[in-house]
Design a protein around this nucleic acid. Structure first.
Lengths: 167, 167
DNA sequence: AATTGTTTTCATTTTATTTTGAAAGTTTAG
DNA sequence: CTAAACTTTCAAAATAAAATGAAAACAATT
């Protein structure tokens, strides 16, 4: 396949994939274009290549910077800003996990805690509700340990070996 | 907190959480109401409790059944259908992972494979692109092994112990 | 301190997604 | 067979989310 065509397909693919996981299409596409570009790009170039507006490009680049997936990078003697994506995908994955945990899982745990004990005359319903919340809470904590383990997996080579045992 | 209030908060919480992860709000809410109900519910009751239309209730119950998170369950002598949610949250998590893998990750792997080799005169860009795709491919496969391992984690008690080492 | 190049903001518009509800379809039972 | 009970479908409406672009803000340069 021709490179330009492949890039377009990839931008498309990554955009769709993102939106299935609650990341907006443009943000994923900006990420895609930066990931596949050998050099840093200006806002102008991003707008151009993705055919999106200045506001859209700006917002999503900044959002990617918040997620720590993209860096601002100056070019000597150039006034405008250039952007470069983190290219180590394992690093990217870790940062996404870290960020979604912070933004979504931790608040979820907070809220679940508040729902752990309720008052009611209907003992059966009360029990059922508390069981459900308790069960979700255990799950969330389990997933939390797992993700912590995984985030450290690459520091501990033997973890990778263990994973393969379960294949 | 009073039970009814807590249930409402939970429905809300679960609905929001779902939509951050690409599951639509009503579907997550139907799931929530079924998870916290001690008895199976009819479409009518779901409509009533969530204040949603018949079409909406029907569509999302069926979708949950497709995801294998909800069962149709008859009551003797009752003509209409009743629904019950899987209550073991670890089971729920496994089914969601399995389903999203099947629906989203496997097609992604397919597409990435098609992008693995490209033709271009611009060797630097070609290289950069191939590296990125390769890197994503490795990541996706790594995550795939991990999720396979995790899905079996509960069958292998010692895996859980290992996870804790990384805490 | 005025000009120019650049970034950011945000009210409005556009697009995408979700929900509705009436109609069509299906099943059950007399 | 057919009426009643119930489920499914889907075009249209409502809502939510994302994108636009012009104007404001900012920063560097003269």
């Amino acid at each position: 396949m021709e490179l330009e065509q492949a890039k377009n397909q990839f931008i498309n693919l990554w955009g769709n994939f993102g939106s299935q996981w609650g990341i907006n299409r443009s943000m994923a596409q900006v990420h895609a274009i930066l990931m596949t570009s050998p050099n840093r790009l200006s806002t102008e170039e991003i707008m151009e290549k993705l055919q999106i507006s200045r506001g859209n490009a700006n917002t999503n680049v900044r959002e990617l910077i918040n997620w720590n997936l993209v860096y601002k990078e100056n070019i000597l003697g150039e006034r405008r800003e250039f952007f470069r994506a983190e290219k180590d995908m394992w690093e990217v994955a870790k940062r996404i996990v870290r960020e979604r945990k912070r933004r979504e899982i931790e608040p979820l745990i907070q809220h679940l805690n508040e729902l752990k004990t309720v008052e009611s005359d209907n003992l059966e319903e009360k029990q059922e509700f508390e069981n459900t919340i308790e069960s979700i809470d255990r799950l969330v904590n389990k997933l939390d340990s797992m993700s912590n383990a995984l985030m450290k997996a690459d520091e501990h080579a033997f973890f990778g070996k263990i994973l393969n045992l379960f294949k």
